[in-house]
Design a binder for these strands. Structure first.
Length: 478
RNA sequence: GGCGCGGUAGCCAAGUGGUAAGGCCGAGGACUGCAAAUCCUUUAUCGUCGGUUCGAUUCCGACCCGCGCCUCCA
C-alpha cells in the first residue's frame, strides 16, 4: 500500500508513487537566504523532510530538490544594507540555514540549486514565454506574464481571474515597479524586473535590457533544469505559497513547456505561536538559536514542530517544547530498556535507525499506517507511545529485542528523531560539583541527613540535580 | 466581499456513525531518611441549536467564536 497524501489541486487523498524505474521527483520551495530561518519556516522543511523519509522507508528512490532563493528584493536589500556583496551576504545565511537543518536532523536535499546561478535558464524560459505570446516586454524593460493567456490560471487556489486584484503592490501598498502602468492587466506578474537604482550592482543583462528575474520564474527554471523536463511527482511548500507563487509557477511552466508541471501539491499549514501568527512585532518569532538559548535541544524543537499533523495549524508554545523534551526522554528510556536486553550501549541505537523495510513493522505497524495515511505524524507518535507503554522489553529475549529495535529504529528514521543526543554533549561536570555530590553521598551514607540535604540544595542552586540509585548517584543538569 | 481551515480534558493534539489515541502538567500510590528520578493508577461526552439515524463528537443545516490566504511570506 503506497503512501497516501492529500493533494491541494484535486483536493483528495492520492497515492504517492514514482513512474516505473524512475526516481520520485520531489521539489520544494526553499528558503530566502536573507537572515536566519524561523521555526515556522522549519516546520515546513521538517514536514517535507519527514515525508521524504517516509517515502524512503516505503522503498522509493527519492530525488529531492530544494532551491535557495538568493536573488530577490529581500536579499538585495539585505546585502546593500550590510555592505556585503549579494553573494557574500547570501552565502553566510545559506551556511546558517545548513547548520540549523543539520541540527534539526534534516536530510540534505539531493540538489540545492541557487536562483542566482540559474539566470540564463530563467532568461531562456522568459524568451519561450514571449515567443508563445504568454508574456510581453514593456517599454521600461520589464517582462510580464499575461495571465489572461492561460486558461487554467487559478485552478490550484481556486481563484477566478476576475477576482484577482493586483499582484503589483508591495507590502506598503506601493506599486513595485515604475512601469506598472504599462502592463496590460493588474493581475499580470513580473518575470523580469528592469534595473533600478536601489538594486545597486545586482543586475544582469538580458534581451530586454539590464535587470533581474522575478521570484516566481526562478522556481520554474530550476525545476526544469534539475528534473530535465520531467513532470514532478510532488511539489511542496507552505500554504501561503499556494497563491500566487505556485499558481504562477504552474502558469509559467505549463505555458512554456506544454505539459503539466506537477502531479501532486503538498501544502503545509502555518505554525502559530501562543495562538497568534508569528511576527516580529508580537515578539513571538523564534529562531532555532532563540530556543537553544533557552536550553532546549534542537531535537525537541523538531519533535514539537512535527508533532501536529501537517494540514492543521500548529499552536507552538514554550510548554510544547517542555512536553517534547519529556516525550523524547521517555523514548530514550524505552530504547534503553530494549538495548539492555541486547546488551548494547545507547550509542548502538543509531545502527537501528535506518530506512529499513515496511514489512518488519511488527508491533509498530499502527504507527507506520498513520504515517502512510496522509503523513499523520500525531497519530504515529500516539501509536508509538502505545507500544512504549506496553513495555515489551519485559517479555522479550535478545533476538526479540533486536527485532523490536529494528522496527522502532525504522520509525525513528521516518520521523527523523535521534535519541541520546543530549547526554553525549553534556558530560562535562565541573570538578567542584562532582566533589559536592560525592560529599553529599558520603554524608547520606553516614546518616548525616541535614548535611546531605544542604549539599543537595546547594547543587540545585548551581543548576545540578542529584539522582540517587541503590548503589550510588548521578549528577545531571537540572 | 471571495476562497479555505478549525472549535475535542489545565495545555498541546489524534480519531471514529455505536458512548473519545497519545504527550505534557496536575492528583493519588509505590519506592526514598525526606526528596529528586523512575514505575503504577487517575482526570473529557467532543462550540451552540436543530435535523437525519435504533444510535452522532463523527453526516446535514443554521448560528456563534477563532484563524489563514486573497499583498513579500514556510
Amino acid at each position: 500500500m503506497p503512501i497516501q497524501l492529500y493533494d491541494t489541486h484535486s483536493r483528495s487523498l492520492r497515492p504517492l508513487e514514482a513512474e516505473a524505474n524512475q526516481p520520485f521527483r520531489f521539489y520544494c520551495c526553499g528558503p530566502t537566504v536573507y537572515g536566519p530561518a524561523h521555526i515556522g519556516n522549519f516546520r515546513t522543511f521538517l514536514l517535507q523532510d519527514t515525508l521524504r523519509r517516509c517515502l524512503e522507508v516505503d522503498g522509493q528512490a527519492v530525488q529531492h530538490v530544494r532551491n535557495l532563493t538568493d536573488v530577490d528584493d529581500k536579499t538585495i536589500k539585505g546585502a546593500i544594507q550590510s555592505g556585503l556583496s549579494l553573494k557574500a551576504f547570501t552565502h553566510q545565511w545559506t551556511e546558517k540555514f545548513h547548520a540549523d537543518c543539520e541540527a534539526l536532523n534534516c536530510l540534505p536535499p539531493h540538489e540545492e540549486p541557487s536562483a542566482v546561478e540559474h539566470i540564463p535558464q530563467q532568461i531562456a524560459l522568459i524568451q519561450q514565454l514571449i515567443e508563445k505570446d504568454h508574456a510581453y516586454a514593456t517599454e521600461g524593460g520589464s517582462v510580464y506574464f499575461r495571465v489572461s493567456s492561460f486558461e487554467n490560471y487559478g485552478s490550484l487556489s481556486r481563484l477566478k481571474e476576475r477576482e484577482l486584484k493586483s499582484q503589483s503592490n508591495n507590502s506598503a501598498g506601493q506599486p513595485n515597479d515604475a512601469d506598472e502602468y504599462t502592463r496590460e492587466a493588474v493581475s499580470d506578474f513580473a518575470l523580469w524586473k528592469c534595473r533600478k537604482e536601489e538594486d545597486g550592482d545586482n543586475f544582469w543583462s538580458s534581451p530586454w535590457g539590464e535587470g533581474r528575474p522575478g521570484w516566481h520564474v526562478e522556481c520554474s527554471a530550476m525545476i526544469e533544469s534539475s528534473f530535465g523536463g520531467a513532470i514532478l511527482d510532488l511539489h511542496g511548500g507552505g500554504v501561503d505559497l499556494c497563491f500566487p507563487h505556485h499558481e504562477n509557477e504552474i502558469a509559467q511552466s505549463e505555458c512554456a513547456h506544454g505539459r503539466p508541471l506537477c502531479k501532486h501539491w503538498f501544502h503545509s499549514a502555518h505554525l502559530m505561536v501562543d495562538g497568534a501568527k508569528m511576527s516580529k512585532s508580537l515578539g513571538n518569532l523564534y529562531t532555532l538559536d532563540d530556543l537553544c538559548a533557552k536550553s532546549f535541544s534542537p531535537m525537541a524543537v523538531r519533535y514539537a514542530l512535527i508533532a501536529g499533523s501537517y494540514r492543521q495549524q500548529l499552536n507552538f508554545t514554550i510548554e510544547t517544547l517542555h512536553a517534547a523534551e519529556s516525550a523524547l526522554a521517555k523514548l530514550e528510556r524505552f530504547a534503553s530498556s530494549l538495548l539492555d536486553k541486547t546488551a548494547e550501549p545507547s550509542s548502538a541505537l543509531e545502527h537501528y535507525i535506518q530506512p529499513g523495510n515496511p514489512e518488519s513493522f511488527d508491533r509498530f505497524s499502527k504507527a507506520w499506517e498513520a504515517l502512510s495515511n496522509n503523513l499523520n505524524t500525531s497519530a504515529a507518535l500516539g501509536a508509538l507511545f502505545g507500544v512504549v507503554g506496553s513495555n515489551p522489553a519485559s517479555t522479550l529475549d535478545a533476538p526479540g529485542a533486536r527485532r523490536t529495535l529494528t522496527a522502532f529504529g525504522t520509525l525513528l528514521y521516518a520521523l527523523g528523531i535521534k535519541l541520546f543526543t543530549k547526554k553525549n554533549t553534556e558530560l562535562n561536570i565541573p570538578e567542584d560539583v562532582r566533589a559536592m555530590g560525592q560529599e553529599r553521598w558520603e554524608a547520606k551514607q553516614a546518616r548525616k541527613y541535614e548535611r546531605a540535604d544542604d549539599l543537595r540544595n546547594a547543587l540545585l542552586e548551581k543548576g545540578w540535580a542529584i539522582k540517587d540509585k541503590p548503589d550510588g548517584f548521578e549528577i545531571e543538569p537540572k
